[in-house]
Amino acid sequence: MHNNIRMRAENVDFYYSEKKTLHQITLPIYKNKVTSIIGPSGCGKSTFIRLLNRMNDLIPNTRLEGRIFLDDQNIYEPDVDVVNIRRKVGMVFQKPNPFPKSIYDNLSYGLKINGANDKHFIEDRVITSLQEAALWDEVKDRLSENALKLSGGQQQRLCIARCLSVQPEVILFDEPCASLDPISTRCIEELIEKLKENYTIVIVTHNMQQAARVSDYTAFFYIGKLIEFDITEKIFTVPKDKRTEEYVTGKFG
């Protein structure tokens, strides 16, 4: 595999019961780059990103054909430890979903379940992650407060910090700003740009401007098919496919 490719989907078909929702998706995810996935609702973009850390395993009666690689390992091999995959491929969800625990406990949870028990190490990681997620200054005096008391934007950054705490290699963002106000959105976009220095990032968004602002590569999905994948600039300026052009210029979707 090309050494600057971190993940790669190969001929992926996906079924809900008998209904095929993804058709022959083949897509590379480049290392330390931001790849955005865009497309109208129901095009399968969220389904696809949830395949990258096997989150769809939780949905009964679903089935995948094809292969998805993380480095050189097909993560859908039967003997793969799915827990290990999810440790390496973190995820931030559409709606902020902090645990109903204190801010500190939200951050230490991931470390503890992965076996960390050194207090200083945990404290260190909590602080670093909050700093990385640009939340530290706002919460440093109230770490024992319940995370649900934070504002929506702060909660989402907390979820990002929580995701960073276990030091994943790839981070998946599933429409992370869908439920946020414009200021929080801006804040999270800046954060994503900073994070790509250390992480490989995939982001699903229905907001084309957002894709244009934050991503290096863009994939356009339409009715379960990957229509076009290219450098973001090209997708938005010289798309090859007519449907991509119509979508990015706002003719539908």
Binding site: M55, C163, V166
Partner: peptide, 15 residues
């Protein structure tokens, strides 16, 4: 218990 709580935990590598 919201499904999103389970997903958040599993996505962190919890069993």
């Amino acid at each position: 218990v919201p499904q999103s709580m389970r997903e958040a935990s599993l996505a962190l590598g919890a069993t």
